[in-house]
């Protein structure tokens, strides 16, 4: 009987725990991909009796798409401006001293529900020794216009799900595609949101610096972004997912579609950009063949993501 008792105890010890723990895949993605949901102040500018505060996610300007929220208050009256015309122009100066910009909303909208000025900016590169970003803003109050400038820092976006790409399409225009959502994808159907912008070639001679007509970008209308997501890893053999939907423009100007990620890891969003007339102006159709051991060939227009 002693023996049996010992035997039971031995079994008890042997099986009281799982040999390998189960994976909490949602927690794993959370550590792999940081999602920012809070808007925090990036810069604060004082101008006469006004204080301008610009907020972005995580208090940082990142390369790629940034939603911005601007608050302007009169420090004398302690009142926030709500009827001002606010303009926003980011410029980067390169080592030659040339100025260029990036897709942005020049005239900010006032969000009456939340009491801030709303806009976006898609930074095309990060700040470094030879390229400095500067904001040129203006606002009006009581019939007066105030202009401010502010040096800013643009940092690398570590979340590849917010990557962007710049290209010149077959129509000769320069386009920008920036991912907006999901920040933190799931192994699921994900609503894929992107901004698609183009640079408007100036038609007039430059006026007084900074002349916004020289740095004009708009969100393109009625285009379609054809989507084919695939895993580039050679062993995945060009794996793709079903039930994806191409991105089309919605009322907020952004493009919405559906991407299904069947597992975590590296994915390539292969795109083809179709203009309002149905012509493909950038991107190549990728092979749908299953090719184990061979890295999947990407479209000439693509964005890599990782989660």
């Amino acid at each position: 009987m002693k023996n049996i008792n010992f035997f039971v105890a031995a079994i008890a010890l042997a099986v009281t725990s799982c040999t390998i723990d189960k994976t909490d895949y949602e927690a794993e993605i959370r550590t792999e991909v940081i999602e920012h949901i809070n808007f925090e102040e990036v810069v604060s500018i004082s101008e006469n009796d006004y204080q301008i505060s610009i907020e972005a996610l995580n208090g940082t300007f990142y390369k790629g798409y940034n939603e911005i929220r601007v608050n302007i208050s009169n420090t004398q009256t302690n009142e926030d401006l709500s009827t001002s015309d606010v303009t926003f122009l980011p410029l980067v100066t390169n080592y030659n001293g040339n100025n260029s910009s990036c897709p942005h909303q020049y005239s900010l909208d006032y969000n009456t529900a939340e009491n801030y000025y709303d806009g976006y900016v898609v930074f095309t590169n990060i700040s470094n020794d030879s390229e400095q970003w500067k904001l040129y803003m203006s606002f009006t109050d009581n019939g007066e216009t105030y202009a401010v400038t502010q040096n800013i820092l643009v940092e690398e976006q570590v979340n590849k799900n917010l990557n962007m790409t710049t290209f010149t399409a077959n129509d000769g225009e320069q386009y920008f595609i920036a991912l907006v959502a999901p920040q933190q994808p799931k192994i699921a159907e994900n609503e894929l949101v992107a901004g698609i912008y183009k640079y408007n070639q100036p038609t007039n001679e430059p006026g007084t610096f900074p002349d916004p007509s020289q740095f004009s970008y708009t969100a393109v209308s009625d285009y379609t972004l054809l989507l084919d997501p695939r895993m580039p890893e050679p062993s995945m053999g060009n794996h793709s997912s079903p039930n994806n939907e191409d991105l089309t423009q919605q009322d907020d100007g952004l493009y919405y579609g559906v991407v299904n990620y069947t597992m975590t890891g590296n994915w390539t969003l292969n795109f083809r950009l179709q203009n309002q007339f149905g012509a493909i102006i950038k991107g190549t159709e990728v092979s749908t063949e299953f090719t184990p051991g061979v890295e999947g060939a990407r479209s000439e227009l693509h964005i890599d993501i990782l989660f």
Binding site: Y25, E28, I187, E233, M263, T264, L306
Partner: peptide, 8 residues
């Protein structure tokens, strides 16, 4: 060194 690929 790349990220592993996971699914249930």
């Amino acid at each position: 060194s790349e990220r592993t690929m996971f699914a249930y």
